[in-house]
């Protein structure tokens, strides 16, 4: 379908998350693990759409639609293993735009140092 007018477009949400693991994880494997988890939980008809926007140094951001936010969060929580290694997925926060998500949750952590008290 051609591009919808803004009033008909679905609202988006951006989830900032962190994957805690012993070895570094590749973004492709994270995407794979999340889509497997979503398919297992909700099946082919109820599975929400998502897009991995970025993932580096164990932290990343993904996009989903606002009415499916809870589903994606639950699927992310239930990820146990990525590429055969145990992981702990941690949701850092949710924002309405890529810019605010990056500013609030990802850049703050990347630029953090002990003198700032963070």
């Amino acid at each position: 379908m051609k591009l919808l007018p803004p009033s008909l477009r679905k609202r988006k949400r951006y989830i900032a998350f962190e994957i805690i693991s012993a070895r570094p994880v590749e973004p492709e494997k994270v995407r794979e693990a999340l889509s497997t988890s979503l398919l297992k939980l909700y099946g082919e008809f109820g599975s929400p759409e998502f897009r991995l926007i970025e993932f580096r140094d164990g932290k990343g951001m993904l996009m989903c639609f606002h009415d499916e936010l809870e589903k994606v969060k639950i699927a992310l929580t239930l990820i146990k293993k990525i590429n055969n290694q145990d992981v702990i997925p941690v949701i850092l926060g949710v924002a309405g735009t890529i810019k605010s998500c990056r500013r609030k949750y990802l850049e703050v952590l990347r630029n953090a140092n002990s003198t700032d008290g963070i």
């Binding site: 809870e70 639950i74 929580t77 145990d86 992981v87 702990i88 941690v90």
Partner: peptide
């Protein structure tokens, strides 16, 4: 049973509220 089974409190509560 190990650190890998742990999740943040909010995530646990969100999951069970589902």
């Amino acid at each position: 049973g190990s650190i890998h089974g742990m999740r943040p409190r909010n995530q646990i509560y969100k999951l069970f509220s589902f």
